[in-house]
Amino acid sequence: MMYAVTTVAILICIGMAMARAFLGPSIYDRILAINSAGTCIVLFLSVLGFLMGRPDFLDIALTYALINFTGTIAILKFFKYGSLGVSDPAAPPKTKVE
């Protein structure tokens, strides 16, 4: 029961985040909204695992939590430089690697 209530709350939250993603107005709002929707979906998947009595669903939640980060970084980097391949000044110096 408690899982069901939580699931409903999370679904409502996903809905609102998606509404923000659709409304915009700027690209940053959309990135933020989709990031939040992603978080909500991780929560949703975790709770769903408990709701359906299959807690091994957590693997998917964990995967998404890790991968969502890569995606958001890629988007931000793309937004900033217009490409993904640019080396950043924060890169370790050449001598350090290898």
Partner: peptide
């Protein structure tokens, strides 16, 4: 399961907040 929960939460917290931070910086 418990360990996975802790890990999921930890990574969610760290990564998602970091991306929001990065986003705000970019803005």
């Amino acid at each position: 399961i418990a360990i996975k929960l802790v890990f999921t939460f930890f990574f969610l917290l760290v990564t998602s907040l970091a991306s929001i931070h990065a986003l705000a910086q970019t803005v």
